[in-house]
Simulated assay, not measured.
Amino acid sequence: MHPPITEWPKIEQPREKMRTLGASALTDAELLAIFLRVGVKGKSAVSLAQDLLHHFGNLPRLLSCTPEELTRIHGMGISKWSQIQAAYELVKRSLEETLSEESVFTSPGYAREYLQAKIGRLPHEVFLCLYLDSGMRLIECQELFRGSLSHTAVYPREILKEALARNASALIVAHNHPSGNHIPSEADQELTKMLVKTLHLVDIPLLDHCIVSGTGFFSFLEAGLMRND
């Protein structure tokens, strides 16, 4: 039996701790407890949050869980899932807004965090295009293809058409590997070469091809694989 949070020393209560020390001083469980607001019989909100993190293994898996997965747990309903998803979506939108205001080269960490938050934990494969303006700021992030890239064709002409329609000055493309392995396959490498050559015909550089998983990130640019040969 855990005492309710209201009976804890004030400095140990998550809301008071945040007010006094700032959000960064709180553990994942304490931050999650603020969203949960209340626990269940015999468990404080912090204890319930710890159970959730243990059940899903880590915070990213919890944030990307389905309503069915969360509501199987005692005390968790659709409203709790909705609250968690709303907070997660705000994080993704904040990162996207930052990319639309700053060059991807002055804030490369935001691009990585944004892509990992957006597609890193998806159970299916998606292919994204990030269209950039002349200042290398994000115009739009568009999902163009869905499904395994070995079965779903990625058409360079479609990417070219969409880039021209947005008057993009440069592109970054990205896709996820639901398997968790973020190492590029031969098909990924061939696709990258084909896209570089196709976009080069209209003087739109492909700056990077990123492969994202829930636990890793691969950049063709950082690996020195963005050659036009």
Rank of each mutant, 00 (worst) to 15 (best):
M1I: 09
H2E: 15
H2N: 14
P3G: 08
T6Y: 10
E7N: 12
W8L: 10
K10H: 06
P14E: 07
E16P: 00
M18G: 03
M18I: 00
M18Q: 13
T20H: 11
T20E: 14
L21V: 02
S24P: 00
L32G: 00
A33L: 01
I34F: 03
V38C: 04
G39P: 11
K41G: 10
K43W: 09
S44W: 03
S44F: 05
A45T: 08
A45L: 06
S47L: 12
S47V: 12
L48N: 08
D51K: 13
L52T: 12
H54D: 14
G57R: 06
G57V: 06
L59S: 06
P60W: 10
S64D: 14
T66Q: 09
P67V: 02
T71L: 05
I73R: 13
I73C: 11
H74T: 11
H74W: 09
G75W: 10
G77L: 10
S79C: 10
W81H: 15
A86W: 02
A86S: 12
V91W: 09
V91E: 13
K92P: 00
R93L: 13
L95K: 04
E96P: 01
E97A: 02
E102N: 01
S103P: 08
S107M: 11
Y110M: 04
E113P: 00
E113F: 02
K118S: 12
K118N: 08
I119E: 07
G120D: 07
L122F: 06
P123T: 02
H124R: 11
H124K: 05
H124L: 00
V126Q: 03
V126W: 03
C129Q: 04
Y131D: 02
L132G: 07
L132K: 05
D133Y: 03
I139N: 05
I139H: 03
Q142N: 04
E143Q: 15
L144M: 14
F145Q: 09
R146W: 00
G147P: 00
H151W: 06
T152K: 11
A153S: 15
Y155A: 12
P156V: 09
P156H: 10
L160D: 08
L164K: 15
A165P: 06
R166M: 08
R166H: 14
N167S: 15
A170T: 07
L171F: 11
A174G: 06
S179F: 06
H182Y: 15
P184E: 06
S185T: 15
E186P: 00
E186V: 11
D188Y: 07
Q189S: 10
Q189G: 00
Q189C: 05
Q189H: 03
E190T: 01
K193H: 11
M194K: 14
L195P: 04
L201N: 13
L201F: 11
V202K: 12
I204W: 08
P205V: 13
C210Y: 08
V212S: 04
V212E: 07
G214I: 01
T215C: 02
G216D: 14
G216C: 03
A223K: 14
G224I: 09
L225M: 15
L225R: 15
M226W: 05
